[in-house]
Structure formats: C-alpha cells, structure tokens
C-alpha cells in the first residue's frame, strides 16, 4: 500500500502548490473551510483534515461565489464583449469528505448534462483534481449514508486517502489522480497497514420512500408548520455543498465593466420575482417548500438522486433550528390520507 505520512503533508502541499492552487480544510479564526494552501498562516490557521465538517464546503473551487464571465466595453451605440474568463488553472481539493465530493458531482449533473454544458463551470471542473478523505467515524450531524453517499469509498474522487493515525493510505482512482500522484510519488512510502473499522452514525435517518411520498404532499399542511420559524436568511444554501443556484449581474464603471455570476438563494423573495410584479413563490412558506422539495424530491426526479448529501451543515448553522433531518422524519410520519 502507498502511504503518505502525516509528517510529510506540508511537503505534499508545497509540491502540489508549484503547479496548482491547493485547497485544504482549515480552521481560520471563527470560520472554517477549504482555503488555498498558499494563504496558510502558521500562527493563526489550523490545518483541519479531521473535521466533520468544516463550515464551508469546497464547492467554491469549481463554482466560485462570484465569477467574472466577460468584459464589456461600450462606445455610444457600440457594445463589445472583448474577453471571456473561462478559468482552467489547475486546482487541487485536498481532503474533501464524501458528502462534499457528492455535492460536486451533483453540480456536474446540473452544469454538464441535460442539453447544455456550462463552459465556465466545465473549465474549472476539468482542471480540478479531487483528493477525498474517507470517513471512518461519522460526525455528530452526519447522515450521508442515508442519502446514498458512500462515506468509506467516496465516489467521484480522483484519489482517496484513508486516515490510519500516523498517515494516510493513498489510493489513486482516475487518470487525473495518476498524474497528481506521479508528481508527489517520492513523498509516498510503501507499507502494509490495517484499515480502521468504520464506526456507526450518531443519528438515524431514513430517506427511503421519502421522494415518492413527497409527490403527493405539495399541498400538505405540514409545510405551514415546518416553515413557520424560517427567517429566509439563506445560510442553509450558502453552506450547502450541492446548492448551485446562481444569479447573473452586470457591473459597469462608466463605459467599461463586466458581467458576472454569483451564488443566489431560493430563500430570497427576489429570486423568482418577475419584472412585471408577479412571483410564483412570494411567501416564506412557498420558498421553504420549494427548497426542501428540490433537495428531496425534484432533483431526484430529474437526475436520479437527491440533492442533499447528508453533510449536516444546514442543520448546524440554521438560526431557527430548522433541520432537514427533522423534515425527513416529519414527511415519514405525515398522515397523507386526508
């Protein structure tokens, strides 16, 4: 087995950093997420590969919070689009958990299938190598396996690492992974180890049949009750590894500027408000319902699997204590005979 000793982690990051931007999980002040290794400040940042989970998923690596699309120049009636910004710089996500890798493959479904390929997403995605960190001890908010995520054998990764205490088993999966492994091969060692036994989940979630049951529950009174405390703040969509909704906006400085896209949230009233004043989801309840139906029913109908990867972030950060786990339970228990 190929093993990466934990004492050599920084050497690996430094080596990879020569040819790619390397995103690693860190605690940074009150915040945690995947940040570029080159911004690592030894005094204040803490490398945090053990975390389940860091607050921010690595989705921004392939789908940045804001992304410039093209430049605009206008001169009187003439308008030119003179440069587009498809970004194909090499990037590495080091230590993503199975739920976060699944979040990215959900975005692959959205951005790369069903008739159109999003060229901006495609450029970043193709240039990104994912090193997944297999989970052997699910965290307190985790329920990924209930959502069909293989936490011990993450799907969609180019390389999988497995924590064995003093190091990681290094398993190369794809061709992209081979290329990355070749760059750091001299930092790996060869020895046989015993893999740890996966520990059970700390909460029991049962999603079986939920998507199908939800088909008949659009008008069910449970949405009134469940949505009552929602403040429509949108933090759940912000920390979600698979939420991909975006807005397209323009910024002009005099005669020059650019069009960009940025994350949007289905929790906001403006999201669906039409110029003429109409809005199919004007109230909190409708937006709340749409978000959870999208996660648990609609996405599965369209792409064959749910849009929730069981990372648990939204249940941790919600200021109103709303939890997708409790919603799954409520749907399970709901009386639909009425």
């Amino acid at each position: 087995m190929k093993i990466l000793s934990k004492t050599r982690l920084e050497n690996v990051f430094n080596k990879l950093n020569e040819t790619a931007e390397v995103f690693v999980p860190m605690q940074r002040g009150e915040q945690s997420g995947f940040y570029p290794w080159q911004t690592f400040a030894a005094g204040s940042d803490k490398l945090w590969l053990e975390a389940l989970n860091v607050y921010l998923p690595p989705k921004n690596v392939v789908f940045p919070q804001t992304e410039r699309m093209y430049n605009i120049k206008q001169e009187g009636q003439d308008v030119k689009i003179d440069e587009t910004y498809e970004d194909s710089k090499s990037r590495v996500i080091f230590g993503a958990r199975a739920c976060d890798v699944k979040g990215i493959t959900c975005m692959d479904d959205v951005f790369l299938t069903r008739g159109y390929e999003d060229s901006f997403y495609k450029a970043r995605r193709q240039a990104t190598t994912i090193i997944a960190n297999a989970c052997y001890a699910p965290g307190i908010a985790c329920f990924c396996s209930a959502m069909g995520v293989k936490y011990v054998d993450p799907e969609g990764a180019d390389i999988i690492i497995r924590d064995i205490g003093d190091g990681y088993v290094w398993e190369t999966i794809t061709e992209k992974g081979e290329m990355l492994t070749a760059r750091i091969a001299d930092l790996l060692e060869e020895r046989e180890v015993t893999l740890p036994e996966p520990k059970p989940f700390q909460q029991d979630v049962n999603y079986d049949g939920v998507a199908e049951k939800l088909k008949g529950m659009f008008e069910h009174p449970l949405w009134d009750k469940l949505s009552q405390t929602c403040q429509n703040c949108g933090i759940c969509t912000y920390v979600c590894p698979s939420c991909y909704c975006f807005d397209i906006q323009v910024k002009m400085y005099g005669n020059e500027g650019y069009r960009f896209r940025c994350w949007d949230s289905c929790m906001y009233e403006e999201y669906t408000r039409e110029a003429g004043g109409g809005n199919p989801r004007p109230a909190s309840k409708e937006r709340f319902r749409n978000r959870f139906l999208h996660k648990l029913e609609f996405f599965k109908e369209r792409y064959g699997h749910p849009l929730c990867t069981g990372c648990g972030r939204c249940t941790v950060v919600c200021p109103a204590g709303i939890s997708i786990v409790k919603i799954i339970d409520a749907v399970k228990e709901a009386d639909t005979d009425a």
């Binding site: 959205v110 951005f111 069903r114 008739g115 159109y116 999003d118 991909y244 909704c245 975006f246 807005d247 397209i248 949007d264 289905c266 999201y271 669906t272 408000r273 039409e274 110029a275 003429g276 109409g278 199919p280 749409n290 999208h294 609609f298």
Partner: peptide, 15 residues
C-alpha cells in the same frame, strides 16, 4: 412566464 437568468436549465429559479 417566469423569471429566468441562464435560459439553459442551470440557475434554478424557473422551476
């Protein structure tokens, strides 16, 4: 009629 941004079934809002 729906509010739309991308036109290609990606941005989410016109579902």
């Amino acid at each position: 009629e729906m509010r739309m941004k991308c036109g290609i079934g990606k941005c989410g809002r016109c579902n």
